[in-house]
Design a protein around this nucleic acid. Structure first.
Lengths: 210, 210
DNA sequence: AAGTAATTTAACCAATTAGTTAAAATAAAT
DNA sequence: ATTTATTTTAACTAATTGGTTAAATTACTT
Protein backbone atom coordinates (compact mmCIF):
# COMPACT_ATOMS: atom_id res chain seq x y z
CA UNK A 1 0.00 0.00 0.00
CA UNK A 2 0.92 3.64 -0.19
CA UNK A 3 2.26 2.93 -3.61
CA UNK A 4 0.10 5.53 -5.26
CA UNK A 5 2.32 8.52 -4.64
CA UNK A 6 0.93 11.60 -6.24
CA UNK A 7 3.49 13.05 -8.57
CA UNK A 8 1.45 16.20 -8.98
CA UNK A 9 1.59 16.95 -5.29
CA UNK A 10 4.52 18.74 -3.76
CA UNK A 11 4.71 16.46 -0.74
CA UNK A 12 5.36 12.75 -0.70
CA UNK A 13 1.89 11.70 0.34
CA UNK A 14 -0.54 9.50 -1.51
CA UNK A 15 -3.47 11.06 -3.27
CA UNK A 16 -6.12 9.96 -0.76
CA UNK A 17 -3.95 11.22 2.05
CA UNK A 18 -3.85 14.62 0.44
CA UNK A 19 -7.59 14.59 -0.13
CA UNK A 20 -8.12 13.64 3.49
CA UNK A 21 -5.84 16.34 4.82
CA UNK A 22 -7.52 18.94 2.66
CA UNK A 23 -10.95 17.85 3.80
CA UNK A 24 -9.92 17.60 7.43
CA UNK A 25 -8.48 21.08 7.31
CA UNK A 26 -11.71 22.46 5.95
CA UNK A 27 -13.92 20.66 8.44
CA UNK A 28 -11.76 21.11 11.52
CA UNK A 29 -11.23 24.80 10.89
CA UNK A 30 -14.92 25.33 10.29
CA UNK A 31 -16.27 23.27 13.18
CA UNK A 32 -13.41 22.83 15.61
CA UNK A 33 -12.29 19.54 17.09
CA UNK A 34 -15.48 18.90 19.03
CA UNK A 35 -17.80 19.92 16.22
CA UNK A 36 -16.05 17.99 13.48
CA UNK A 37 -16.95 14.38 12.76
CA UNK A 38 -14.89 11.76 11.01
CA UNK A 39 -17.89 10.98 8.83
CA UNK A 40 -18.06 14.53 7.51
CA UNK A 41 -14.34 14.59 6.85
CA UNK A 42 -14.68 11.38 4.88
CA UNK A 43 -17.62 12.82 2.94
CA UNK A 44 -15.79 16.01 2.09
CA UNK A 45 -12.75 14.01 1.07
CA UNK A 46 -14.97 11.93 -1.17
CA UNK A 47 -14.03 8.66 0.49
CA UNK A 48 -15.56 6.45 3.16
CA UNK A 49 -14.99 6.23 6.86
CA UNK A 50 -13.17 2.92 6.67
CA UNK A 51 -10.51 4.31 4.40
CA UNK A 52 -10.25 7.43 6.48
CA UNK A 53 -9.51 5.37 9.56
CA UNK A 54 -7.21 3.24 7.49
CA UNK A 55 -4.98 6.22 6.78
CA UNK A 56 -5.48 8.09 10.04
CA UNK A 57 -6.23 5.69 12.85
CA UNK A 58 -7.49 8.31 15.28
CA UNK A 59 -9.30 11.61 15.05
CA UNK A 60 -6.68 12.94 17.42
CA UNK A 61 -3.85 12.12 15.01
CA UNK A 62 -5.58 13.75 12.10
CA UNK A 63 -6.36 16.80 14.18
CA UNK A 64 -2.83 17.30 15.39
CA UNK A 65 -1.58 17.09 11.84
CA UNK A 66 -4.05 19.72 10.74
CA UNK A 67 -3.44 21.94 13.73
CA UNK A 68 0.29 22.01 13.18
CA UNK A 69 -0.21 22.82 9.52
CA UNK A 70 -2.73 25.52 10.34
CA UNK A 71 -0.55 27.10 12.95
CA UNK A 72 2.34 27.27 10.54
CA UNK A 73 0.14 29.18 8.14
CA UNK A 74 -1.15 31.41 10.86
CA UNK A 75 2.35 32.39 11.83
CA UNK A 76 3.54 34.04 8.66
CA UNK A 77 7.03 34.64 7.49
CA UNK A 78 7.68 37.42 9.95
CA UNK A 79 11.23 36.29 10.04
CA UNK A 80 11.79 37.22 6.40
CA UNK A 81 10.14 40.59 6.64
CA UNK A 82 11.84 41.56 9.85
CA UNK A 83 15.31 40.44 8.88
CA UNK A 84 15.24 42.05 5.46
CA UNK A 85 17.31 45.19 4.92
CA UNK A 86 14.38 47.42 4.10
CA UNK A 87 13.85 50.50 6.25
CA UNK A 88 11.68 49.99 9.33
CA UNK A 89 8.64 51.68 7.88
CA UNK A 90 8.75 49.44 4.84
CA UNK A 91 9.10 46.40 7.03
CA UNK A 92 6.08 47.32 9.08
CA UNK A 93 4.08 48.15 6.00
CA UNK A 94 4.75 44.91 4.20
CA UNK A 95 4.14 42.90 7.32
CA UNK A 96 0.72 44.44 7.86
CA UNK A 97 -0.30 44.14 4.25
CA UNK A 98 0.95 40.60 3.95
CA UNK A 99 -0.76 39.54 7.10
CA UNK A 100 -4.10 41.11 6.28
CA UNK A 101 -3.99 39.45 2.89
CA UNK A 102 -3.28 36.13 4.54
CA UNK A 103 -6.14 36.62 6.98
CA UNK A 104 -8.50 37.66 4.22
CA UNK A 105 -7.78 34.41 2.44
CA UNK A 106 -8.10 32.34 5.62
CA UNK A 107 -10.58 34.17 7.82
CA UNK A 108 -11.43 31.16 9.99
CA UNK A 109 -7.86 30.20 10.68
CA UNK A 110 -7.20 32.51 13.64
CA UNK A 111 -10.35 31.77 15.62
CA UNK A 112 -9.77 28.07 15.07
CA UNK A 113 -6.20 28.24 16.32
CA UNK A 114 -7.01 30.49 19.24
CA UNK A 115 -10.01 28.52 20.39
CA UNK A 116 -8.38 25.11 20.19
CA UNK A 117 -5.32 26.50 21.90
CA UNK A 118 -7.42 27.93 24.67
CA UNK A 119 -9.34 24.66 25.06
CA UNK A 120 -6.36 22.30 25.06
CA UNK A 121 -3.30 24.40 25.81
CA UNK A 122 -1.19 21.59 27.27
CA UNK A 123 -1.71 19.25 24.34
CA UNK A 124 -1.20 21.85 21.65
CA UNK A 125 1.57 23.91 23.12
CA UNK A 126 4.08 21.23 22.24
CA UNK A 127 2.88 21.25 18.66
CA UNK A 128 3.21 24.97 18.21
CA UNK A 129 6.66 24.89 19.74
CA UNK A 130 7.79 22.53 17.03
CA UNK A 131 6.61 24.91 14.33
CA UNK A 132 10.07 26.27 13.69
CA UNK A 133 9.20 29.71 14.95
CA UNK A 134 11.96 31.52 16.74
CA UNK A 135 10.43 34.38 18.69
CA UNK A 136 13.59 35.55 20.38
CA UNK A 137 15.25 35.89 17.01
CA UNK A 138 12.36 37.96 15.72
CA UNK A 139 12.43 40.11 18.81
CA UNK A 140 16.16 40.61 18.49
CA UNK A 141 15.96 41.53 14.82
CA UNK A 142 13.00 43.78 15.31
CA UNK A 143 14.65 45.43 18.27
CA UNK A 144 17.71 46.13 16.20
CA UNK A 145 15.59 47.74 13.51
CA UNK A 146 13.95 49.92 16.11
CA UNK A 147 17.26 50.96 17.64
CA UNK A 148 18.56 51.90 14.21
CA UNK A 149 15.47 53.97 13.61
CA UNK A 150 16.08 55.74 16.88
CA UNK A 151 13.05 54.38 18.68
CA UNK A 152 13.77 53.56 22.27
CA UNK A 153 10.67 54.75 24.00
CA UNK A 154 8.33 51.82 23.42
CA UNK A 155 8.78 48.23 24.63
CA UNK A 156 9.11 45.89 21.73
CA UNK A 157 6.87 43.11 23.00
CA UNK A 158 4.00 45.54 23.44
CA UNK A 159 4.61 46.94 20.00
CA UNK A 160 4.63 43.48 18.49
CA UNK A 161 1.42 42.54 20.26
CA UNK A 162 -0.18 45.82 19.25
CA UNK A 163 0.50 45.19 15.59
CA UNK A 164 -0.70 41.60 15.71
CA UNK A 165 -3.78 42.58 17.70
CA UNK A 166 -4.87 45.25 15.28
CA UNK A 167 -4.46 42.87 12.33
CA UNK A 168 -5.94 39.71 13.77
CA UNK A 169 -8.68 40.79 16.14
CA UNK A 170 -10.94 42.44 13.54
CA UNK A 171 -10.96 39.17 11.63
CA UNK A 172 -11.65 37.07 14.70
CA UNK A 173 -14.45 39.40 15.75
CA UNK A 174 -16.03 39.65 12.34
CA UNK A 175 -19.60 38.80 13.41
CA UNK A 176 -19.66 41.50 16.10
CA UNK A 177 -17.94 44.14 14.04
CA UNK A 178 -19.88 43.40 10.91
CA UNK A 179 -23.21 43.46 12.69
CA UNK A 180 -22.56 46.42 15.00
CA UNK A 181 -20.48 48.71 12.84
CA UNK A 182 -21.71 47.78 9.36
CA UNK A 183 -25.25 46.58 9.86
CA UNK A 184 -24.32 43.11 8.73
CA UNK A 185 -23.18 44.33 5.33
CA UNK A 186 -20.36 42.06 4.33
CA UNK A 187 -19.05 44.29 1.56
CA UNK A 188 -18.64 47.18 3.99
CA UNK A 189 -16.87 44.94 6.44
CA UNK A 190 -14.50 43.62 3.78
CA UNK A 191 -13.71 47.14 2.68
CA UNK A 192 -13.04 48.07 6.28
CA UNK A 193 -10.52 45.25 6.61
CA UNK A 194 -8.72 46.34 3.48
CA UNK A 195 -8.66 49.94 4.69
CA UNK A 196 -6.98 48.76 7.83
CA UNK A 197 -3.79 48.14 5.86
CA UNK A 198 -3.42 51.89 5.67
CA UNK A 199 -4.90 52.84 9.01
CA UNK A 200 -3.00 50.37 11.14
CA UNK A 201 0.18 51.50 9.44
CA UNK A 202 -0.60 55.18 9.97
CA UNK A 203 -1.48 54.53 13.57
CA UNK A 204 1.77 52.77 14.30
CA UNK A 205 3.95 55.25 12.48
CA UNK A 206 2.43 58.16 14.35
CA UNK A 207 2.60 56.36 17.66
CA UNK A 208 6.29 55.72 17.09
CA UNK A 209 6.90 59.17 15.61
CA UNK A 210 9.02 57.79 12.80
CA UNK B 1 -43.45 24.86 41.65
CA UNK B 2 -41.10 27.82 41.47
CA UNK B 3 -42.35 28.79 44.90
CA UNK B 4 -38.91 28.84 46.41
CA UNK B 5 -37.93 32.31 45.29
CA UNK B 6 -34.59 33.18 46.68
CA UNK B 7 -34.87 36.36 48.70
CA UNK B 8 -31.12 36.61 48.96
CA UNK B 9 -30.74 36.73 45.22
CA UNK B 10 -31.09 39.96 43.31
CA UNK B 11 -33.16 38.44 40.54
CA UNK B 12 -36.52 36.75 40.84
CA UNK B 13 -35.30 33.25 40.13
CA UNK B 14 -35.50 30.22 42.37
CA UNK B 15 -32.39 29.02 44.11
CA UNK B 16 -31.80 25.97 41.91
CA UNK B 17 -32.26 28.12 38.84
CA UNK B 18 -29.51 30.40 40.03
CA UNK B 19 -27.25 27.48 40.83
CA UNK B 20 -27.90 26.07 37.39
CA UNK B 21 -27.17 29.32 35.62
CA UNK B 22 -23.97 29.79 37.56
CA UNK B 23 -22.85 26.26 36.77
CA UNK B 24 -23.87 26.51 33.14
CA UNK B 25 -21.93 29.73 32.77
CA UNK B 26 -18.83 28.13 34.16
CA UNK B 27 -19.08 25.00 32.03
CA UNK B 28 -20.18 26.62 28.77
CA UNK B 29 -17.50 29.29 28.94
CA UNK B 30 -14.85 26.74 29.70
CA UNK B 31 -15.84 24.11 27.16
CA UNK B 32 -18.05 25.82 24.63
CA UNK B 33 -21.44 24.60 23.48
CA UNK B 34 -20.15 21.44 21.83
CA UNK B 35 -17.79 20.53 24.64
CA UNK B 36 -20.22 21.12 27.48
CA UNK B 37 -22.54 18.35 28.67
CA UNK B 38 -25.77 18.66 30.58
CA UNK B 39 -24.46 16.08 33.01
CA UNK B 40 -21.45 18.19 33.91
CA UNK B 41 -23.58 21.27 34.33
CA UNK B 42 -25.84 19.35 36.68
CA UNK B 43 -22.84 18.06 38.61
CA UNK B 44 -21.32 21.52 38.97
CA UNK B 45 -24.69 22.89 40.04
CA UNK B 46 -24.91 20.14 42.64
CA UNK B 47 -28.18 18.76 41.30
CA UNK B 48 -29.16 15.93 39.00
CA UNK B 49 -29.88 15.82 35.32
CA UNK B 50 -33.61 15.31 35.77
CA UNK B 51 -33.97 18.52 37.70
CA UNK B 52 -31.74 20.36 35.27
CA UNK B 53 -34.01 19.36 32.41
CA UNK B 54 -36.98 20.19 34.54
CA UNK B 55 -35.89 23.82 34.77
CA UNK B 56 -34.26 24.12 31.36
CA UNK B 57 -35.91 21.80 28.92
CA UNK B 58 -33.19 22.04 26.28
CA UNK B 59 -29.45 22.58 26.24
CA UNK B 60 -30.08 25.16 23.57
CA UNK B 61 -32.30 27.22 25.87
CA UNK B 62 -29.79 27.15 28.68
CA UNK B 63 -27.02 28.07 26.32
CA UNK B 64 -28.79 31.05 24.84
CA UNK B 65 -29.50 32.37 28.31
CA UNK B 66 -25.85 32.06 29.24
CA UNK B 67 -24.62 33.50 25.97
CA UNK B 68 -26.74 36.58 26.27
CA UNK B 69 -25.60 37.11 29.83
CA UNK B 70 -21.97 36.56 28.86
CA UNK B 71 -22.17 38.94 25.95
CA UNK B 72 -23.59 41.64 28.14
CA UNK B 73 -20.60 41.30 30.42
CA UNK B 74 -18.22 41.24 27.53
CA UNK B 75 -19.56 44.50 26.22
CA UNK B 76 -18.76 46.81 29.09
CA UNK B 77 -20.27 50.11 29.95
CA UNK B 78 -18.57 51.94 27.13
CA UNK B 79 -21.63 54.11 26.95
CA UNK B 80 -20.99 55.56 30.42
CA UNK B 81 -17.33 56.21 29.87
CA UNK B 82 -17.77 57.74 26.46
CA UNK B 83 -20.68 59.97 27.33
CA UNK B 84 -19.15 61.30 30.53
CA UNK B 85 -17.85 64.85 30.55
CA UNK B 86 -14.26 63.94 31.25
CA UNK B 87 -11.60 65.06 28.77
CA UNK B 88 -10.92 62.64 25.93
CA UNK B 89 -7.67 61.39 27.36
CA UNK B 90 -9.32 60.54 30.63
CA UNK B 91 -12.09 58.74 28.82
CA UNK B 92 -9.68 56.62 26.86
CA UNK B 93 -7.62 55.91 29.94
CA UNK B 94 -10.50 54.76 32.08
CA UNK B 95 -11.94 52.70 29.27
CA UNK B 96 -8.71 50.79 28.76
CA UNK B 97 -8.11 50.26 32.45
CA UNK B 98 -11.67 49.20 33.11
CA UNK B 99 -11.70 46.81 30.20
CA UNK B 100 -8.40 45.18 31.03
CA UNK B 101 -9.58 44.70 34.59
CA UNK B 102 -12.77 43.12 33.33
CA UNK B 103 -10.82 40.82 31.04
CA UNK B 104 -8.41 39.89 33.79
CA UNK B 105 -11.33 38.79 35.90
CA UNK B 106 -12.99 36.91 33.04
CA UNK B 107 -10.19 35.72 30.79
CA UNK B 108 -12.23 33.00 29.07
CA UNK B 109 -15.17 35.22 28.27
CA UNK B 110 -13.90 36.73 25.01
CA UNK B 111 -12.72 33.53 23.34
CA UNK B 112 -15.99 31.89 24.30
CA UNK B 113 -18.07 34.69 22.81
CA UNK B 114 -15.96 35.02 19.71
CA UNK B 115 -15.79 31.33 18.98
CA UNK B 116 -19.48 30.64 19.48
CA UNK B 117 -20.31 33.69 17.44
CA UNK B 118 -18.09 32.54 14.66
CA UNK B 119 -19.57 29.03 14.78
CA UNK B 120 -23.24 30.00 14.88
CA UNK B 121 -23.45 33.60 13.70
CA UNK B 122 -27.04 33.46 12.46
CA UNK B 123 -28.41 32.00 15.67
CA UNK B 124 -26.48 34.27 17.99
CA UNK B 125 -26.59 37.53 16.10
CA UNK B 126 -30.18 38.08 17.17
CA UNK B 127 -29.21 37.55 20.79
CA UNK B 128 -26.42 40.07 20.75
CA UNK B 129 -28.62 42.58 19.02
CA UNK B 130 -31.04 42.43 21.93
CA UNK B 131 -28.26 43.22 24.39
CA UNK B 132 -29.22 46.87 24.63
CA UNK B 133 -26.02 48.05 23.05
CA UNK B 134 -26.31 51.12 20.88
CA UNK B 135 -23.22 51.31 18.69
CA UNK B 136 -24.28 54.33 16.69
CA UNK B 137 -24.78 56.29 19.89
CA UNK B 138 -21.32 55.33 21.07
CA UNK B 139 -19.85 56.26 17.74
CA UNK B 140 -21.65 59.58 17.76
CA UNK B 141 -20.56 60.43 21.29
CA UNK B 142 -17.02 59.32 20.70
CA UNK B 143 -16.89 61.25 17.47
CA UNK B 144 -18.02 64.36 19.25
CA UNK B 145 -15.29 63.94 21.85
CA UNK B 146 -12.74 63.58 19.09
CA UNK B 147 -13.97 66.67 17.26
CA UNK B 148 -13.78 68.68 20.44
CA UNK B 149 -10.24 67.50 20.99
CA UNK B 150 -9.39 68.61 17.47
CA UNK B 151 -8.79 65.18 16.07
CA UNK B 152 -10.09 64.82 12.56
CA UNK B 153 -7.40 62.83 10.89
CA UNK B 154 -8.32 59.33 11.97
CA UNK B 155 -11.52 57.41 11.19
CA UNK B 156 -13.42 56.65 14.34
CA UNK B 157 -14.37 53.07 13.56
CA UNK B 158 -10.76 52.16 13.01
CA UNK B 159 -9.78 53.90 16.20
CA UNK B 160 -12.47 52.05 18.13
CA UNK B 161 -11.42 48.71 16.69
CA UNK B 162 -7.76 49.50 17.37
CA UNK B 163 -8.44 50.12 21.03
CA UNK B 164 -10.60 47.04 21.44
CA UNK B 165 -8.13 44.90 19.54
CA UNK B 166 -5.18 45.90 21.69
CA UNK B 167 -7.15 45.19 24.86
CA UNK B 168 -8.88 41.96 23.93
CA UNK B 169 -6.52 40.12 21.62
CA UNK B 170 -3.70 39.62 24.13
CA UNK B 171 -6.19 37.90 26.43
CA UNK B 172 -7.64 35.74 23.68
CA UNK B 173 -4.18 34.75 22.53
CA UNK B 174 -2.81 34.05 25.98
CA UNK B 175 -1.43 30.57 25.23
CA UNK B 176 0.59 31.76 22.24
CA UNK B 177 1.81 34.95 23.86
CA UNK B 178 2.57 33.35 27.16
CA UNK B 179 4.48 30.52 25.60
CA UNK B 180 6.33 32.47 22.92
CA UNK B 181 7.05 35.74 24.65
CA UNK B 182 7.26 34.65 28.27
CA UNK B 183 8.38 31.04 28.14
CA UNK B 184 5.11 29.90 29.64
CA UNK B 185 5.64 31.94 32.78
CA UNK B 186 2.17 32.99 33.87
CA UNK B 187 3.36 35.69 36.26
CA UNK B 188 5.28 37.42 33.50
CA UNK B 189 2.28 37.21 31.22
CA UNK B 190 -0.03 38.67 33.87
CA UNK B 191 2.37 41.51 34.48
CA UNK B 192 2.50 42.14 30.76
CA UNK B 193 -1.27 42.44 30.61
CA UNK B 194 -1.28 44.93 33.47
CA UNK B 195 1.48 46.94 31.83
CA UNK B 196 -0.66 47.19 28.75
CA UNK B 197 -2.93 49.62 30.57
CA UNK B 198 -0.15 52.14 30.27
CA UNK B 199 1.30 51.10 26.95
CA UNK B 200 -1.93 50.92 25.03
CA UNK B 201 -2.84 54.33 26.36
CA UNK B 202 0.54 55.82 25.44
CA UNK B 203 0.33 54.28 22.00
CA UNK B 204 -3.06 55.75 21.28
CA UNK B 205 -2.28 59.18 22.65
CA UNK B 206 0.83 59.44 20.54
CA UNK B 207 -0.90 58.10 17.47
CA UNK B 208 -3.58 60.74 17.87
CA UNK B 209 -1.10 63.42 18.88
CA UNK B 210 -3.27 64.65 21.72
C1' DA C 1 -4.72 -13.11 -17.34
C1' DA C 2 -3.28 -13.41 -12.71
C1' DG C 3 -2.00 -11.42 -8.67
C1' DT C 4 -1.58 -7.65 -5.66
C1' DA C 5 -2.87 -3.31 -3.70
C1' DA C 6 -6.41 0.12 -2.90
C1' DT C 7 -11.09 1.08 -1.90
C1' DT C 8 -15.87 0.27 -0.82
C1' DT C 9 -19.69 -1.84 1.42
C1' DA C 10 -22.17 -2.65 5.21
C1' DA C 11 -22.68 -4.24 9.29
C1' DC C 12 -21.28 -3.93 13.81
C1' DC C 13 -19.54 -2.45 18.80
C1' DA C 14 -19.01 0.47 22.62
C1' DA C 15 -19.33 4.84 24.52
C1' DT C 16 -21.45 9.16 25.00
C1' DT C 17 -25.10 12.13 25.26
C1' DA C 18 -29.70 14.83 25.17
C1' DG C 19 -33.79 14.12 26.84
C1' DT C 20 -37.81 11.42 29.16
C1' DT C 21 -40.34 9.12 32.65
C1' DA C 22 -42.44 7.35 36.77
C1' DA C 23 -42.03 6.37 41.22
C1' DA C 24 -39.82 7.24 45.63
C1' DA C 25 -38.05 10.38 48.95
C1' DT C 26 -37.53 14.73 51.02
C1' DA C 27 -38.84 19.25 52.39
C1' DA C 28 -42.24 23.00 53.04
C1' DA C 29 -46.62 24.78 53.91
C1' DT C 30 -51.10 24.56 55.86
C1' DA D 1 -50.60 15.54 60.41
C1' DT D 2 -51.69 15.99 55.88
C1' DT D 3 -51.31 17.98 51.72
C1' DT D 4 -48.43 20.02 48.28
C1' DA D 5 -44.27 21.18 46.01
C1' DT D 6 -39.54 20.02 45.23
C1' DT D 7 -35.84 16.91 44.38
C1' DT D 8 -33.74 12.47 43.68
C1' DT D 9 -33.25 7.90 41.90
C1' DA D 10 -32.63 5.07 38.37
C1' DA D 11 -33.76 3.19 34.50
C1' DC D 12 -34.70 3.95 29.83
C1' DT D 13 -34.86 5.70 24.64
C1' DA D 14 -32.96 7.34 20.62
C1' DA D 15 -29.46 9.39 18.25
C1' DT D 16 -24.67 10.30 17.35
C1' DT D 17 -20.15 9.11 17.04
C1' DG D 18 -15.32 7.00 16.96
C1' DG D 19 -13.53 3.08 15.68
C1' DT D 20 -13.35 -1.93 13.85
C1' DT D 21 -13.90 -5.74 10.79
C1' DA D 22 -14.34 -8.93 6.99
C1' DA D 23 -15.74 -9.68 2.68
C1' DA D 24 -16.55 -7.84 -1.87
C1' DT D 25 -15.13 -4.90 -5.50
C1' DT D 26 -12.32 -2.10 -8.20
C1' DA D 27 -7.87 -0.56 -9.98
C1' DC D 28 -2.91 -1.42 -10.94
C1' DT D 29 0.90 -3.97 -12.11
C1' DT D 30 3.41 -7.37 -14.34
Amino acid sequence: MDNNKNINSPNNLSEPENKILEAAKKVFIQKGFDGATMQEIADVAGINKALLHYYFRKKEILFKTIFQQAFSEFVPNIQEVISSDKPLRKKIKSFIEGYIDLLTKNPYLPIFILNELSQRPEKLITIIKSSGLNPSLIIKNFDKSLQEAGIKSYPIKHLLVNILSMCIFPVVAKPVISSFLFDGNDKSYQLFIQQRKKYIYDFIIKALKI
